[in-house]
Write a protein that binds this DNA or RNA. Structure first.
Lengths: 218, 218
DNA sequence: GCCACAATCAACCTTTTGGTTGATGGGCGG
DNA sequence: CCGCCCATCAACCAAAAGGTTGATTGTGGC
């Protein structure tokens, strides 16, 4: 049986070594290459493609230190920038905020796993991704389902984006400039956010959004 | 030559596998055991001690998901709670915030490395720790020096108390009522807080205070 | 005793937010 | 095609927050 060829993308040598050790121990999976950031991943994909040794699954971290982050890299891979038929991208990260998950899914990721997952779960996810299926960590799936069942907060992507800037302490004017929209629009978004979160000021919005892990907090 | 026996403490199976693979590849280092959180680390230390197979160095993550965190565990190990002569504890984590570093050092850690460090740096740090020396990642050392040059904000207890209420989203009037002081006093405190944190509004104050772990966030 | 500082309050003013109403255009599902 | 929602903007008003000055009290250190 043909082995599933995986490309590891993570800025931590330790994590790459761990994944390599874990994955190669499984039957049917081999590690084709490693990359330390998104840019290197794109280059590696292209190189392996021209060598006639295509990658079946990309295992991608989200936070990548200085280099190109995982969401951007996923988007570019899916856009075909590596010059190859885009392989499935499986996100493997430590964070599980709504903002991260939504961004990854929108970028075209076909799975979202957490690094503290047991090895077998990661193996299953790689197999699923290689088979063209979607694989979500139970915690992630639960959050998405909960969101569907309980459309209470139901913030739009734009609103989450605003919330994140809000949480950095920016004023309305600064947010407006960041997003290239008018201050009036920022205020409109905020009013909607307040309504959906059941609060009446920005600090309370941040408190609620943080607690519900709609946005992330270092 | 006697091997240096290391105890790995990290909640991520992936990271443990990576460290194990990396460390065992080095001459003179072997992985004695693994633990998924601080409590397990204490128990393992005690067990290995009674077996007459003491640990030379503890490699400890800081963020440990649900279990006992690394700072607490380090403190307890150094306090002798494992019933053993406390081995050196080398922190190995992804975050390098001032608060994390200071907390770890205060808890008695004898080193602070980042997970994206090259393998050889990690090896050197383990050797140094085993020899009773201190090993700081260059980035960490730089940050500590910077902190010494321009000292900490030094908020008063009252100001921290205010910050915590601030972070829950309360307005000045509500904070005043909570603390049984006037709104004017709240504003005065806030001005002082803004000055010390180098910001000019409440959300930015929360952002900075959270990032520096002056206040706590789930 | 004096100085520095934390904590408290007041009055005043400027800037920022919050809240409302209304309007436009794009996209998507029934 | 018609709503519905999202994203965008405007004008306006009320409320809250930000900033300044100045003052009182208590505590701790030199």
């Amino acid at each position: 049986m043909k082995e599933i060829r995986v490309l590891l993308v993570d800025d931590h040598p330790v994590v790459r070594a761990g994944l390599r050790a874990m994955l190669t121990a499984f039957d049917g999976i081999e590690v084709a290459e490693e990359a330390a950031d998104g840019a290197a991943a794109l280059a590696t994909l292209a190189r392996l493609h021209t060598l006639g040794e295509p990658v079946d699954v990309v295992l991608m971290d989200l936070q990548m230190g200085a280099g190109m982050d995982g969401v951007t890299a996923t988007g570019r891979i899916k856009a075909g920038e590596a010059g190859t038929p885009a392989p499935p991208v499986l996100i493997l990260t430590t964070f599980d905020s709504d903002a991260d998950i939504l961004a990854a899914v929108e970028a075209g990721a076909s799975g979202y796993m957490l690094k503290d997952a047991p090895p077998d779960q990661i193996r299953q996810a790689v197999l699923s991704a290689a088979a063209g299926q979607t694989a979500l960590a139970p915690e992630v799936a639960a959050r998405l389902l909960g969101r569907i069942r309980n459309p209470a907060p139901a913030l739009s992507a734009r609103e989450i984006q605003l919330l994140e800037l809000l949480a950095t302490g920016l004023g309305n004017r600064a947010i407006a400039r960041q997003l290239f929209i008018s201050e009036a629009t920022v205020k409109t978004h905020l009013v909607h956010i307040y309504g959906k979160l059941g609060v009446d000021n920005r600090t309370a919005a941040i408190a609620v959004a943080t607690q519900q892990r709609i946005i992330r907090r270092g």
